[in-house]
Design a protein around this nucleic acid. Sequence first.
DNA 1: GCAATAGTGTCTATTAGACAATATTTC
DNA 2: GAAATATTGTCTAATAGACACTATTGC
Lengths: 252, 252
Amino acid sequence: MPPYDPSAFPPFAVTVDLVVLTVRRHALCALAVRRGEPPFQGRWALPGGFVRADEDLEDAAARELAEETGLHAQSPTGPAPAYGAHLEQLATYGDPKRDPRMRVVSVAHLVLAPDLPAPTAGGDAHSARWAPVETLLEQDEAREGELTAPLAFDHARILGDGVERARSKIEYSSLATAFCPQEFTVGELRRVYEAVWGVALDPRNFHRKVTGTPGFLVPTGGTTTRQGGRPAQLFRAGGATLLNPPMLRPEV
Amino acid sequence: MPPYDPSAFPPFAVTVDLVVLTVRRHALCALAVRRGEPPFQGRWALPGGFVRADEDLEDAAARELAEETGLHAQSPTGPAPAYGAHLEQLATYGDPKRDPRMRVVSVAHLVLAPDLPAPTAGGDAHSARWAPVETLLEQDEAREGELTAPLAFDHARILGDGVERARSKIEYSSLATAFCPQEFTVGELRRVYEAVWGVALDPRNFHRKVTGTPGFLVPTGGTTTRQGGRPAQLFRAGGATLLNPPMLRPEV
DNA sequence: GCAATAGTGTCTATTAGACAATATTTC
DNA sequence: GAAATATTGTCTAATAGACACTATTGC
């Protein structure tokens, strides 16, 4: 019975990679950093880095997130800071050939954040930017712009998995509010759904649905006209995490 | 910029652990193996083992599954063998203290299998058995049977996550058929839902629902009376993977 | 006034769930 | 016949989606 012989395990490196999503200008965007060294030098990649020797996986993801964006993570398993992004584990990628140098297992995490002013608040990446996910996932069809090149490593697959997770999770949970600022209007929340799903939703039915789901939205009493038109009520995210009944994605 | 320095990564061991679920005697059961060496010697644990140096994570999970049960995996990303269990990645667990000996990151996988005759077809575990998940997840409240002791390591948490995944996934996918033999009746499929969810379902509405969902079930033409009563039509799983509309879990 | 967004009301087709009734087997 | 399971039919309350209509701002 050879398993669990601590002295004879194959050497692995373990990293965390981050799929950081936000909604900017009506488009679902992801954070990409430009690689400063080989392999894939100069190419865009997902932010990430090594897990430290005495660090839990989620802590490593939160640390990388803070280093890249200044955001503080707000995960289900931990005390919630005043202002933070949603962080959850996505999946783990361990193809033996995914990194040409050595065996690297990457535990990808998904982050949903409100629209942020500056993409690179500080960190060790040469440069960083938000890019629409369609741009990052496009195949490189004789185009010249660097952003249209495929992502380094298997990061296109990881990004695709993260986008798919986000698209399905806002159906049956209140996670769409993680894309909104602390106070937001029903119209702003609707535009999040429209951007993430890439569809148009009926504003009237949407309003009735979200305000009628208990625990989804809590009115703050304030109003705003930042979208123009009639002033809209401001809401905060309510305590509910699972939506029952779910939001229905049209044309499935 | 220190990330990705291949010569200075902390040493990790990477394992796969398996949550193998089946339905036996109207109860959701998981495969447990008895540990033959410290730590947790003599305690029950989830099957698993080291990922080999040149092996993908899913391949390692499929290999461990075959070693423990003789089952062949049938994953979405690979050619489907004639007869196989459903295999998918569950989550990754990497608390620095989860193994007292060294830093071990475990990539847990979820397996859904039809009822099997012998739990330990061959393998390196001293003994193995199916146990109801409630038994394995019970706290050790001054009981004496070994099966009621908590699982080794963080395996109770992993098993709980796997059970939760299975319970939610049969709602909106056709995965419940993975618990059935190749040919099965509507009543047998209903008893799978009842065992996994722990509820009673109306046989008449259930029948109308599953036979009315396109692509869920394909009649084979045969009938069986193995449940007693009027002969029931036999079905195979259809091509549909996502159920729309989903099966609704009562009392949520 | 017009344009834009917010919000309410109403109608209809669909559906989930309750449950009566019938069909076909074993005992 | 009695008991068990399978299968179909019917009714009702709830709901998703379409869309008319009103409200309140900025210009």
